[in-house]
Each structure stands twice: as structure tokens, then as C-alpha cells.
Computed example of a mutant assay.
Amino acid sequence: MYLPPQFKGQDAQAALLIQQYPFASLISSDNDGLPFVTHLPLHLELRDDSFVLLGHVAKANLHWRHLQARPQAVVTFLGPHAYMSPKVYPDLVHVPTWNYLAVHCSVSASLIHDAPAKDDLLKKLIADNEPGFAAQWQGMTQDYAEKMLSGIVAFELKVTGLQCKIKLNQHRPEAFEAMHAVYAKGSDDERALALWMDKVRQ
């Protein structure tokens, strides 16, 4: 992605964004060479100082076949985003913009077919999103659990390249405090951006 140096985030910020906003876009090439996109939650792990993303798709979703044939893919995460009015500047010689947080990962995929490994992956996603459901999942009959596991294809996505964009107009200090004041009283996304502005200026 286009990443001016003033908006370049660090790996630790990327990890935090992925954990806070785990619903991703997985982008591969289909058999015609066109982008094939699946929207899905992913679990982040740190292994040997490298990021690994874990997820799964329904067996009926052809995306896993594209990953099998062409393991190189891209994963994107979008954090909070919001409009920024030029009214925050002390003068009128400015235009509107849009502030946002995003992470792009180049990945290499490997499929997981082993049922116990798929079960372990699902437990990690459950722990991320609804820990209380773990007991219910573990209490399922073996036949039902096997049926559910056979209906998905799981995968690991080893991150081979990472870009993190923290676009908060931090290169415009004359408007930073005014923009923070607007965002702090705004929508959920705007308030989330205000919290990230606090991190940037620390």
C-alpha cells in the first residue's frame, strides 16, 4: 500500500491492531488470475519472532483450493477510520481527508487437514472471541464435532512481509489537538482514533 514515512507504524502497533480488529480480508489469485477475497476472523500468534495467522473457511469455499495451488497471498486488516474536516486547521487553506489504521500482510499459506490440529485452531479462535463458548464446544458429541471439523479447511498463514499504516495526520501538529478534541466526542470509530492519537503523541 502507499505508505508515506510519517504514517509508518511499528510491528508492535500492527500486532495490537490485528488483535483489536481481527476481521480480515484474505486475498488470493483465482484460476483466472483475478483476486479472490474472503472476509474472515484470524488469530495472531508470534512464533520465533515471526507472525503467524490462523483461520479457516468452509470446505465449499474454493479459497482453500486457491491457497493450495498458489500459497502466496495478502491479508489486510482495517482498524478505526473517520472523516477529518479541514475546520480543525487554524486557516482555511486545507482540504478534507480520511484518517485510518490498516495492516497489510504478505503471507505464505499451508493447509491443516488433521482433525486435532483443526480443533486446536478453533479453540484459539473461540478464546479470542467468546471464551465462554469453549465449554459448550468441548461438550459436543464426538459425531457432531467431527462433522463440524470435516466441513472446514483450516490453514496457517506465515507472515513474510508486513506494512502498518497509522494515518492520523500526525505530520500536521497545528491541527492535531483540535482534531483530537473532535474525535474524542464523536462516533465509536472517532473515539478509537482519539485513543490511538494519544499513543502516537506519547
Rank of each mutant, 00 (worst) to 15 (best):
V182T: 12
A69L: 06
L193Q: 02
W196N: 01
T160R: 01
D114T: 11
A184H: 11
L42G: 00
K8N: 10
A178N: 12
S110Y: 09
H94Y: 05
A14M: 04
S29H: 12
Q202W: 07
S29N: 13
V107E: 00
S29R: 13
F155M: 08
E45D: 10
V103L: 01
K199N: 06
Y2L: 10
P173I: 04
G139T: 07
Y144I: 14
F36P: 00
S106G: 15
A14V: 00
D143K: 15
L53K: 06
F23A: 00
L195A: 15
A12L: 14
K167R: 06
G33W: 05
R201Q: 11
V37E: 04
Q138A: 15
N99Y: 14
Q68F: 11
G79A: 01
K87C: 08
P35M: 04
K124E: 10
Y183F: 15
L62K: 15
D188G: 13
K185H: 12
I166S: 00
H39L: 07
Y100S: 01
K147N: 07
S187Q: 08
A135Y: 06
L34S: 09
V88E: 08
A109E: 00
T141W: 02
K165V: 13
V93H: 12
V107T: 11
L62T: 14
Q72S: 07
M84L: 14
W137K: 05
Q20S: 12
W196G: 02
A102S: 14
L46S: 13
L26C: 09
H94W: 08
A181R: 15
A181F: 10
D143N: 10
L121G: 01
A60V: 14
T76L: 00
D32H: 12
P35N: 06
Q142M: 08
Y21T: 13
T97A: 01
L111W: 02
A181P: 07
Y183K: 07
G33D: 01
A175S: 14
F36G: 09
Q10P: 03
A175C: 06
L149W: 01
R201D: 00
L195T: 13
W196P: 02
H94T: 08
A178K: 05
L162H: 04
G55N: 06
H104P: 04
V107S: 02
N31A: 11
D30V: 11
E190P: 01
R65H: 12
I112E: 03
V200A: 14
A24N: 05
V74S: 13
M179C: 14
S29L: 15
P90I: 09
P5A: 10
V159Q: 02
A60P: 00
Q68Y: 13
M179Q: 15
T38F: 03
L46M: 12
H63G: 01
V95W: 03
A69M: 07
G132R: 09
P173V: 06
Q136E: 14
D188M: 11
P96C: 00
L54S: 10
S50N: 13
L67A: 03
T160K: 04
A69E: 10
L121W: 09
